[in-house]
Amino acid sequence: MDDQDILTTLKILIIGESGVGKSSLLLRFTDDTFDPEQASTIGVDFKVKTITVEGNNKAKLAIWDTAGQERFRTLTPSYYRGAQGVILVYDVSSKQSFNKLDAWLNELETFATKHDLVKMLVGNKIDKERREVSKEEGLKFARKHRMLFIEASAKTKEGVQYAFEELVEKIIQTPGLWETDKQGLKLSENASDGSYSACGGYCVI
């Protein structure tokens, strides 16, 4: 892979309750594989993938897949540092995982260093028959917290690619969020262009 034409590297975090399918989403996105017996993540997993954005531009994604299970998490979640995008995952067949979203958002607010980072809410496992969380509920939550929203299934590939692409797109569109890493000057140029409003929920299947 040639790194020459890569526009930027973006740090993306995947968080959410244990067993909602964070690792599965990542593996479907990076390796296009799916393991029904996916083992619990311990501490943190890390993957790199380059995707094409806005015409011919390429963006390298440094994706951090974190452990959902309390006992497998490291004591200080230092991986939030410098994250530009966050994928918050819940399981549409588990109301409990949906109810925990507030706690995850709280943790995110507490540890994230970039406060305009882009958040995407993903309702995973839509292939399952028994749903406990409706799409409307998800959408409502996402709107309330100014997040992007999509429902997906790592098993059936549905919505996975789209979720990452949308997130990256949004980050690229957010002035001052990614360029600052390369050149400090761009920050001041785009700072005047403050018309951006984080409107959640426009992104649907």
Binding site: T9, L10, K11, V48, A62, W64, R81, G82, D181
Partner: peptide, 30 residues
């Protein structure tokens, strides 16, 4: 984790290290 990363680096090629570094956003940089 630093120790684990060192093990990785000792057995990696330049590209793998670059990816792991990921412009200072990867685990290695961490």
């Amino acid at each position: 984790m630093k120790f684990k990363e060192l093990i990785f680096v000792l057995n990696a090629n330049l590209q793998e290290i670059t990816d792991r570094w990921a412009d200072g956003k990867g685990v290695l940089a961490h």
